[in-house]
């Protein structure tokens, strides 16, 4: 039962991205071609509201429901990891039109074959785990 809250938040997130057409392959293509403001509006307004939310949390030292300090785990800066890893992800994102969130939403939205993309993404993660020591980070 304690997990029910995450199911609910996930459901809201899923409905939001479905209704705002973020799960559409065509919207991602359009975004990368700069042919519409829509996706930039979605991500941009999410980030603007997100920045305000995080600032409020930090300035007021708000605590989570368990009384712990709320933090977003800081990522240690490096060039190679984010630039190369990010670019590889971007190549796949533009092909499949789906990042790891929308993949799951598309599955519920009637696109059964996206299951193949999910399985393949799990495989990609596995191969990264196997070869990560050889990669620049």
């Amino acid at each position: 039962m304690k997990f029910l809250r995450y199911l609910l938040i996930g459901t809201i997130f899923g409905i939001t991205l479905a209704k705002a057409e973020v799960i559409s392959w065509f919207r991602i293509y359009e975004m990368f071609k700069f042919q519409s403001f829509h996706m930039y509006g979605v991500i941009g307004s999410a980030v603007v509201v997100g920045i305000i939310v995080i600032q409020i949390i930090k300035r007021n030292k708000l605590k989570s429901i368990d009384g712990e300090k709320i933090i977003i785990a800081p990522k240690q800066f490096s060039w190679a990891r984010y630039l190369i890893g990010g670019s590889i992800f971007g190549l796949g994102w533009a092909m499949t039109g789906a990042c790891p969130g929308p993949m799951f939403i598309l599955l519920g939205n009637g696109v059964g074959v996206i299951l193949v993309v999910i399985v393949s993404a799990v495989l990609g993660t596995y191969v990264y785990g196997k070869v990560r020591h050889k990669l620049p980070h």
């Binding site: 990891r81 495989l123 990609g124 191969v127």
Partner: peptide, 18 residues
């Protein structure tokens, strides 16, 4: 589907997030 999904899974973990 296969290569695309693979790149998403590999790249996102390499980059430490999506």
């Amino acid at each position: 589907m296969i290569v695309g999904g693979f790149l998403v899974g590999f790249g996102t973990r390499y980059a430490g997030g999506c």
